[in-house]
C-alpha cells in the first residue's frame, strides 16, 4: 500500500544543510496500524509530511497505492491529498472563521466530487460519530482542544481516505482526552479499514500497532 525508498529530507538553514530524514525505506501494508516512535527532532514529522504529500523529499520516492505521488503535477497532487490522504496535525488545525460542520465539509467542497447537500449530510454524520452531534454550528474558538481534535478527525475522514496520517494528535491533550482520541483513531482503522500511521510518544499505544517504526537521527532503526 505504501512504499518509501531512499527518502531523504534536507533543510537549508543559515548554519548549512540539516538532514532531517536520511535514506528511509518503509513499507506499510493496507489496513494496518503503524506506530512511528522516536525522540523529538528525530525526523518523524518530516517523514510523515513527505508521505502525506505536504513536503517534497530531497531524494527518494513514495508510492501510495501504486502512485508515485511526488511525480504528480500540482493539481494532481492537490487532488491526491484531498481524496486519498487524511492528515491530523499535532496542533489544532481548523479554520477559525468556519463552523465545525463547514470545517469538516471543506475538503469535499474544495474538490467538489459530491453535491453540497450530500457533503453536509456526511459531515454531520462524521461529527456525530466523533461525538460532536451537538456542535455542528460551533466555531473553533467555542470548542475545547479535544473537541477541536475530534473535528479534525472528522474532517480527515470526509473524503474516505485510504491513508490516515496522525502526527502526535494528542500531544497537547490531557490523558483522558488523549485516550478518547486514540480510541477514535483506532476505531477508524479497525472499522473502516483505513491504513493508520500514527506518530506517538506513548509506547503503550505503539505496542498495539501491527508495525512499529522507530526513527533515530533521521534514519529508521532496523
Amino acid at each position: 500500500m505504501l512504499s518509501c525508498r531512499g527518502l531523504r529530507k534536507t533543510y537549508q538553514t543559515d548554519r548549512g544543510p540539516v538532514d532531517a530524514v536520511r535514506g528511509a525505506d518503509l513499507d506499510v501494508a493496507a489496513r494496518h496500524y503503524v506506530a512511528v516512535i522516536g525522540r523529538s527532532g528525530s525526523g518523524k514529522s518530516s517523514l510523515m509530511a513527505m508521505i502525506g504529500g505536504l513536503s517534497q523529499p530531497s531524494a527518494g520516492s513514495i508510492l501510495i497505492d501504486g502512485a508515485d505521488i511526488w511525480s504528480l503535477n500540482d493539481n494532481a497532487m492537490a487532488q491526491f491529498r484531498n481524496r486519498r490522504i487524511g492528515y491530523i496535525f499535532q496542533f489544532a488545525s481548523l479554520l477559525p472563521t468556519l463552523r465545525a460542520i463547514d470545517n469538516v465539509a471543506l475538503p469535499a467542497l474544495l474538490d467538489r466530487h459530491s453535491g453540497t447537500a450530500d457533503t453536509y449530510n456526511r459531515a454531520a454524520q462524521l461529527l456525530t460519530e466523533v461525538g460532536l452531534g451537538s456542535h455542528f454550528d460551533a466555531y473553533p474558538s467555542e470548542m475545547s482542544a479535544g473537541e477541536q481534535r475530534r473535528t479534525v478527525i472528522a474532517r480527515a475522514l470526509i473524503n474516505d481516505p485510504i491513508l490516515l496520517l496522525a502526527d502526535e494528535p494528542t500531544s497537547d491533550l490531557d490523558v483522558e482526552t488523549e485516550s478518547e482520541i486514540m480510541a477514535l483513531l483506532l476505531n477508524v482503522n479497525h472499522e473502516r479499514g483505513t491504513t493508520l500511521i500514527l506518530v506517538t510518544h506513548n509506547l503503550a499505544l505503539a505496542s498495539e500497532a501491527e508495525q512499529v517504526v522507530q526513527i533515530a537521527d533521521g534514519a529508521i532503526v532496523p
Binding site: G52, L54, N75, A78, Q79, R81, S93, P107, R155, N159
Partner: peptide, 15 residues
C-alpha cells in the same frame, strides 16, 4: 499557516 492547511487538505494553487 492557514494557507498551508488549505493546501494540505487538497486546495489547489489556483484556489
Amino acid at each position: 499557516s492557514e494557507l498551508g492547511l488549505l493546501k494540505a487538505i487538497g486546495a489547489k494553487r489556483s484556489q
